[in-house]
Write a protein that binds this DNA or RNA. Structure first.
Lengths: 258, 258
DNA sequence: ACGCTCAGTGTATGGTATACACAGTTGTCA
DNA sequence: TGACAACTGTGTATACCATACACTGAGCGT
């Protein structure tokens, strides 16, 4: 995405609005295949390992041939992002009450990050564009329909929760990555970091940090990642509930503008 | 950062533990200069525009000469991350009460993202390593010292707030970026996105989203970015306060482990 | 003054995206 | 049926990227 037209092009690509040709040789590949291959590479080797060459190699085809299917690598990334959101949430599984529904939604969301760790690396540069991601958006909004939240606050909550899930995922992944980089088991990484901090606080200039380190916070995880995630999620949902209860009918005031 | 030794190397580089040589020609550059130049490039052209070549060009020097100062581009990035955190928070400015202090801390944090938008792009892969970032960490922990939070929860709150600030910054930047990509003024971008969604919801498959779009949520921002940031921050601090009040002495239980 | 250490250069390798010209295939229309 | 236009995939070229390695020459410690 670099120029004005590319956003529109990407949008059309995501919604399958690009008419397929009739004349000419039959394509040997398909956009879906290519996107799937790219996702597999990202899953196993990370997002930065996804290159047009590597994808093309999977099909025994030259790099340039991919450009017959996908206008640019950036568009491929956008397609990947929407593909892993397919087919969208199963609304029949979504609980009735807004709180349970949001809880369910956030957990499903987190699952995507677990399945595709490269998501935390993904350079999000705009709100949901593709059909599948928009279905997820729809689900979250539908979850909040009986909650008493204003439309403005619904969107705000959606963004808050999305952000939380991503942060939590990033943090969990940083743990794994930190361990990998130091050549240590993930459970040991905390100890390694604690050891570094112990050296740092030895000079006495970081008394608060020293107390934390001495309390052993970094040496062992408080809980597993799942419990951590749930803990924070409950915290946020409590806040949202309090928000709803404290101001029965009114939400935030919209700033002027008719 | 790819192998075991690199984490240690980076750590030493950050803390200036690499002894300077005495013999040989005088260096014409310094690590500080190089890092500063890289930051300037990132500030004006984005993080991905930072290349060893571009940095070297600023000094009229070959690309490879930089490697006399910095072991790898990755280390340069780490140095940049710590450099923009310099000189650390001014603790004399930090309010007394934990809530005000955390508020102050988060706002300062947000300022860093505003000054250096590439921060949201930064591939964080571990907790704070460098002296300046650790000073910020110390400040946040010190802020919470009289709050009644357990050490575990202090760290948890720190991570929660950091995540929130980053999310908010990312969202604000996505707005600017989305506008740039569609070739439109930032204030208009909401309208452009709303227009896209209007096309999407026309099929009737997204009733909840349709209602939100019709409510005009995307057409005009509810508030400016500052108010939005404060709104969320207050929400989180309220939650933390509630957390403290609801369980006076005890925090989360640590999971077994002696 | 010798020699070692180090700064900066030049070159090379292997990677990236993608622009462009081309060859060969195939559906459609005259 | 034949011609053509549209289309697929290839090959080549450009312009980047990080970084390994061998080298020249500078300057301090002995």
């Amino acid at each position: 995405m670099a120029d004005k037209s590319s956003a529109q092009r990407t949008f059309e690509l995501l919604w399958g609005l690009r008419g397929q040709p009739t004349r000419g040789p039959k394509p040997s590949l398909s956009v879906e295949q290519i996107v799937q291959a790219a996702i597999e590479i990202a899953d196993s080797e990370g997002l930065e390992a996804v290159s047009m060459r590597k994808v093309a190699e999977r099909f025994g085809v030259t790099t340039m041939s991919l450009y017959r299917y996908v206008p640019s690598k950036n568009d491929l990334l956008e397609l990947m992002l929407d593909a892993i959101a397919a087919p969208g949430p199963d609304l029949s599984q979504m609980p009735e009450h807004w709180r349970d529904a949001l809880h369910w939604w956030a957990r499903q969301n987190m699952e995507a990050f677990r399945r595709h760790p490269w998501l935390v690396q993904f350079p999000f540069s705009h709100p949901p564009f593709g059909p599948n991601n928009i279905r997820w958006m729809e689900a979250a909004l539908r979850a909040m329909e009986g909650s008493g939240l204003t439309p403005d606050d619904m969107v705000w909550v959606l963004i808050l929760l999305s952000g939380y899930v991503r942060s939590e995922a990033a943090q969990q992944l940083a743990l794994v990555e930190g361990a990998r980089v130091t050549g240590v088991e993930p459970e040991e990484w905390g100890r390694v970091y604690a050891e570094m901090l112990r050296k740092v606080v030895a000079d006495g200039d970081h008394p608060a940090l020293a107390r934390i380190v001495e309390a052993g916070v970094f040496d062992a995880p408080v809980q597993g990642p799942d419990e951590d995630f749930e803990y924070g999620l409950t915290f946020l949902l409590d806040g949202i509930e309090a928000m709803i209860n404290s101001r029965p009918p009114a939400g935030r005031k919209r700033s002027s503008r008719p």
